[in-house]
Amino acid sequence: MADTATRQENYDHLVLNTCVLAGRIMIESGSEMSRVNDTIMRIAKNAGLKDAQVYATLTGIIMSGGVKEVGAEVGSIDKRAFDMEKVAKVNELSRAYAAKKIDIYEFRDDLIHIDDLVANFPLWLQTLGAGLVSGTLVVVFQNNLPDFWITFIVGMCGWAVYYFLNIYIQIRFLSEFLAAVVVGALALIAVKNGIGYKADDIIIGGMMPLVPGIPLTNAVRDALSGNLISGPARGIEALISACALGFGVAIALHFF
């Protein structure tokens, strides 16, 4: 009798742990809050915790199982990046669990090893992507076809600087600021040496990969779905990013 009770307790602990882990991965990868809540509640319901409650914010998750023996679990979230493939993977795993294709042990195992399961694009491909965004958007926004290639290169340099500083400094706003300085400086130098035509257009293009598009979208969505903690918090995140980019460009314009 006591044995089954402990086993049930262990199982409930495991479910709570899995839920918090899933939510943590989703928030760290840049998912919106309503999806996080939805996924966690779905996992809990499928695992048999009918009265589970979850409170998720941008910096932490609190979850209780709604059963007497098991308390609550807290998961803290220190850093956030953008990795849409992880969001998709957690979603996929949650669907597979709902369809009973995997059990809770496999689910938790996959979540713990998600870094091995999800492949990142290699750095050269990401840099190429940044170049693509920069170069093409100069044509779209400013009708400026001749500056395509130089913007492509400036955008790639800006992204590479951002990427490496992010690894070493780990303060996102600072690396954004320095990347913006590099983009502005390169654009102005290129125009001075006759490689580019319009410095303004090149800077606009080169900044586009760094623009905080996802935090802004998520801020609007979170605020609209009634999450008044995470919506404004994300808005502030986006605002600080935008200010960092702006100061970077302003400094480049001033000195070069």
Binding site: M84, N120, L132
Partner: peptide, 17 residues
């Protein structure tokens, strides 16, 4: 064509599947 590639490029940055 440029808009199409800008979408793909941003997808590469944010690690879309």
């Amino acid at each position: 064509i440029c808009v199409y590639f800008s979408g793909i490029g941003f997808g590469l940055i944010v690690n879309l599947p």
